[in-house]
Simulated scan of single mutants.
Amino acid sequence: YAIVTQTPYGNTFTKDIVLELLEKEGVGKGAYTDYVSVSFTALEQIGNAFGSLSKEVQDCMVRLDFELQFLLQYLELTYGKENFLLVVSSTYGVETPYKSATATKNHGGVFKQVEALYILQKYLETTYGSGNWIEHSFGRQIYLNRDLIAQYNLSLPNIQDEAALFLLQLAGVSSVLTAHAMNSGVFFDETKQRIAHAYNQQRSGDIYYELLPGWTEQSTDKVAQHISSFSEITHVPLLWYGWKTKAQRIHTPIATTDIIPTLTEILAIQRPQKAYGTYIQGIFE
């Protein structure tokens, strides 16, 4: 069934499962408020496979619009508009693709992660000695081999800094943050603040790099266009519909991290410990 995830029918199956869940589990029929979270992921898979401006993505968008329409009609007919609250958003936006950026004379390019990691590995070997200095990479995070660093009796922060300075020399790299900097530093730059907020001491990598605007990243056979902290990526839709909402546009800056604090406020429950953000003013009557 893996191929289904790269077709619009992946979203159709997701919608059908949601409707079955609502019906068979009696969601919204009890004395307490029920919470249901749904993620339509086919669009992301299709975008990664064919590109954000492809006909396949356009087709998926049109079909997804119909899926959301069907789901909304079901909610209104089953529960009534005043008895449910629907929040629609996106995990991220999409950067301007490389070909589009060059066509409009903006600087851009493709950052080949595999080649960059190979060059960094050779640099660390030349500087510190033989060994597999890079243990793993995920997204734009690089995990260094800490056992090897300890074996050579080297300073982890120093090697993180050396690797960061080297990566900054590569074409397309705009900034590099190290784990020890995120542990001890205070950032006033909005982009770096977003990166630091996502950092986890137990799971995040030793190094995180950011690309320049207009640059996309090629990892193995895919060109990802959504791993970024720039405004093109973080600017996403946020729609509220149903219970006590009023038709309006809010022009003040709102973050997706404000969704959970707002929901916990109207439900009069404690927000999750790691949730940050503020209550969104003015969306309810």
Rank of each mutant, 00 (worst) to 15 (best):
S52D: 11
D258G: 12
E115D: 13
H136Q: 14
Y92G: 10
L156W: 03
A224K: 11
W133L: 00
L167E: 01
E135G: 06
I250R: 12
Q169R: 15
T14K: 11
E82L: 00
D34I: 03
E162F: 01
I149K: 00
T102G: 02
Q160V: 04
Q202V: 15
S90V: 05
A116Q: 07
Y128T: 08
V62L: 15
Y209Q: 05
E115P: 01
G93I: 01
M182W: 09
S54E: 05
D258L: 14
V27I: 03
E285R: 04
A224E: 10
T178N: 03
Y118F: 10
G214M: 02
D221C: 13
S175A: 15
L239K: 02
V87T: 14
K246I: 01
V114M: 14
K192Y: 04
K81D: 08
W133M: 00
G47I: 00
F187K: 13
N200A: 05
I233T: 15
G93Q: 01
T178A: 03
Q141M: 08
E76R: 12
L75G: 02
E44Y: 09
L156P: 02
S52H: 11
D258E: 14
E95C: 05
M182E: 08
I159W: 05
P213V: 14
E162T: 06
N145L: 00
Y92K: 12
A255Q: 10
S100C: 07
A179L: 13
H197D: 12
T126C: 06
A181D: 14
T191A: 13
E217A: 12
